[in-house]
Design a protein around this nucleic acid. Structure first.
Lengths: 249, 249
DNA sequence: GAATACAACCAGTTTATAACTGGTCTTATC
DNA sequence: GATAAGACCAGTTATAAACTGGTTGTATTC
């Protein structure tokens, strides 16, 4: 469906809506209907805010208010300087199949995390190797304790080149959300799992004894164009095995 | 040293040289002297061919002939569309992606190798991780002892997805030749170097004692489109350090 | 006070373009 | 074979322009 016919459709929808509801809410509903009826496919682009405003004879403020609501609901994904993309929240969470939070929720517990550090620095030798970076590159390194129902169950270190996430402050709870917001959605990952003894530091964070066996996962995440976007090492209290699998959305 | 003063210097040098020698050879010597006397630092850029030709009142053909000689000697590194970079052979062996054979030859010795095994199999967990492969993929794994003047100096294990080299029989002496023949020339690599104690097997192959420190390099080679084409681990008799650098052709 | 409108301007991204670069070829002179 | 001059191709980089969404004003209407 072309941009013009989409706008016409939204325009008709808008005309038929109750006039005592605020315009921006009516516009929001109209666009939502268009999306849900698949007039724009997920992954497709919405017309620019200026185009929408002009063709619907609305002000940009109104259009932006409507889009803001839709983005909050997860139906849209806006990117500064790029465009506004259609993408449902359900798909977002599918793409983060590897997400710790989902894993924990699926087991009926409440996920949480405590940040140990967020820093921007040069990559370590291992990180250079894993991410394919030269020494002059910069990375954002984040370390946190993952919890389930408040109990610590893993220590996780994520490293991302600043090219993809320029500042650690952009990451709130979910690294994947920060990546997605900038248009870098990992599509494939290679993950290795094996066991290792807990260091005294690990032990302190995980409330276990030093030397206790941990399940260690190493993960390299790839963008659709095979660029390496993240290197992540997680040390879980748990099982013992050595296994590699491929993660795909 | 600025471009202009470099050109002036080369110009003077050129004027003083014997007139019965071909111009391009005299120019080559003049530039070589300038480089060896550090008038241009390694890593620095030479003026463009057109600038050189014009300022020295020479034709571009002459300049190109001189530069070609210098490149052949390894003093220069020309890149289409970029510029001509100054880089001595010593640095080239570090900064560029050269094969083992080239490396050894550059040091005035005769390279050789003894094949320990060539096999086609499923990737190991470490190989899956390094090459970004799923377990269903197939790889060609090659292990050999590298020699210089007949003396064993390294044990090397190379792994390449069958996608790039379908059979180990296609590899005679040089893996890179086999790759190039199929149109897969690695252009960039990330290499990590560190030390590790020799296993008894390493020791047997390298004629040293078990436990002796080896220099171990891990290398991941990338195609121009960032696909990972090779994972290679080499254990050298030698130094002790941990350092990663980027290799580029 | 909330909704709407209009108008600027900022900042990030993409695209197109221009201005280089080295690589190649032809033609010509000596 | 060495030298010269010119034209053109192809790869790279730098720049500018034309978008994008983000933000901040003021003003009007109900």
């Amino acid at each position: 469906m072309s941009e013009i016919s989409l706008i016409e459709r939204v325009g008709r929808e808008l005309g038929q809506s109750a006039p005592d509801v605020p315009l921006y809410k009516r516009l929001k509903s109209a666009i939502e209907t268009a999306i849900r009826s698949n007039a724009v496919k997920p992954g497709g682009m919405l017309p620019g805010e200026r185009v929408l405003a002009e063709n619907l004879s609305l002000s940009r403020v109104t259009v932006r208010k409507a889009l803001a609501l839709l983005e909050e609901e997860g139906l849209l994904n806006r990117r500064h300087g790029f465009r506004t993309e259609v993408g449902s929240r359900v798909e977002k969470s599918l793409a983060t199949l590897t997400s710790f939070s989902e894993d924990i929720r699926a087991r009926g517990m409440e996920p949480g995390c405590v940040w140990l550090s967020k820093q921007i620095s040069r990559p370590s030798p291992a990180e250079m190797m894993a991410l394919g970076l030269s020494a002059s590159a910069m990375v954002v390194r984040m370390k946190r304790v993952r919890t389930a129902d408040g109990q610590p169950i893993a220590v996780e270190s994520s490293t991302v080149p600043t090219r993809f996430v320029p500042s650690p402050d952009l990451v709130r709870d979910s690294l994947y959300e920060a990546l997605a917001a900038r248009g870098f959605m990992p599509q494939r990952a290679i993950q290795r799992m094996r066991s290792r003894a807990a260091s005294s530091e690990d032990a302190a964070h995980l409330h276990c004894e030093a030397g206790a066996p941990l399940l260690v996962t190493e993960r390299r995440c790839f963008l659709p164009d095979e660029q390496i976007v993240e290197y992540c090492e997680t040390r879980y209290k748990g099982e013992v095995y050595d296994f590699v699998f491929e993660l795909q959305r």
